[in-house]
Write a protein that binds this DNA or RNA. Structure first.
Lengths: 202, 202
DNA sequence: AGCAATGCTGGGCACCTGCTTAGCATGAGG
DNA sequence: CCTCATGCTAAGCAGGTGCCCAGCATTGCT
């Protein structure tokens, strides 16, 4: 009797309409606003559809999270393989939307352990990718790994940006400009001035 | 007709019992668990008492927040006036309980603008105190303020620790030890090895 | 024509939420 | 002795929540 209830197909159109609506709600009003009825309303669909496509709300949240996380992993891999990997990593972890979505999920993780596990899993995947790529760079840039290990470098770069994004969302600003300047001065020392990315063919 | 409803005195015993319960709930289960009925249950009191002492839930949250924030400001002032201010600031912003409470309030700020305003206000007060104290230190320690401004130093120290605390709460760990070591190496260079604090007379 | 899979929905249950109202009990001050 | 402030509470309203069930329509397969 594993599941009993009939669920909609994973590739049905309205399923992703619901995912979009949930994600938007998450960004605009925080996770507490994401209820089956609110999501459906935002999507212009009936509330029961949420339960038709997702066994429960946890599954909805997980689906939103995984979709974004997988996309983010690809995005990060491309960044780390680009000509200025540290610059790219820095810009990557400075994206406002992605980082505020992440913050919502971190908040959710406090209450829904299924989600906490998934976030921990993906976070480690992100970090493993970063450390691996940066390990090569530390050698290439002749950074003394006793001074600045790849792990520390990665924690610093991604942590600082996320923290500043968070503070900005609260309306804080003091110290931000100086910190950005400091980081970017170091990036320039290592990788030269940021080259404008050429527009990516879609 | 400003308020109409009769409210309990701010110094009544059970009022702070409720505040304690709310704070504990906030820590253990996140802000979504903080409802009037849950708080009252945790406090061993009747739910209506919550509404007798607080006009609404926002006021409850604000009261919990202010109590902690005021205490934190004193704590921080003492830290910054101690013989090893940077070490003290570092340890201060590494306290697990305080930082996870802060994270809950940051989450709440997304949904309740009254709380967002209060957090922004106090955060700036914390930061102003930090920057002021650290400005003196930068001179005393002969740090080149063009290399590392007080603002950047403060954002880095407090941000890194909070970020790592957050990740730890999620179950992450890679890169943390190296980052801690890096920070503490720098602190030692500036202020010497951490002296054990003598037990504070209460 | 018959069947099964699929998308969808009307209606509803059980539960939790913030908050209110009207009132009871007690103790201090006049 | 009466009054009034204070602490507290029974009862309840209006509204939101997750989720389920039974069933309808449509489509494609055999």
């Amino acid at each position: 009797m594993a599941s009993s209830r009939r669920l909609g197909a994973p590739d049905a159109k309205n399923r992703s309409v619901l995912l979009d609506a949930a994600e938007q709600l998450l960004l605009e009003e925080g996770y507490a606003a994401v209820s089956s009825r609110r999501v459906a309303a935002k999507a212009g669909l009936k509330p029961q559809l949420v339960h038709y496509y997702f066994r429960n709300m946890d599954e909805l949240f997980l689906a939103v999270f995984r979709r974004r996380a997988e996309e983010g992993l690809k995005h990060q891999a491309a960044a780390l393989a680009s000509p200025q990997p540290l610059w790219a990593l820095w810009e990557f972890s400075t994206e406002t939307e992605a980082s505020s979505l992440t913050m919502e999920f971190v908040g959710l993780a406090n209450q829904r352990k299924a989600i906490r596990a998934e976030i921990a899993y993906y976070s480690e995947r992100f970090r493993r990718g970063q450390i691996e790529a940066v390990s090569g760079l530390v050698r290439r840039y002749k950074i003394d790994p006793n001074e600045l290990s790849p792990g520390a470098l990665v924690v610093l770069m991604t942590g600082i940006s996320r923290m500043i994004m968070m503070e900005k969302a609260l309306g804080m600003s003091s110290g931000h400009a100086e910190t950005f300047a400091l980081v970017e001065r170091h990036l320039e020392r290592l990788e030269g001035p940021r080259e404008p990315r050429r527009p990516q063919p879609d």
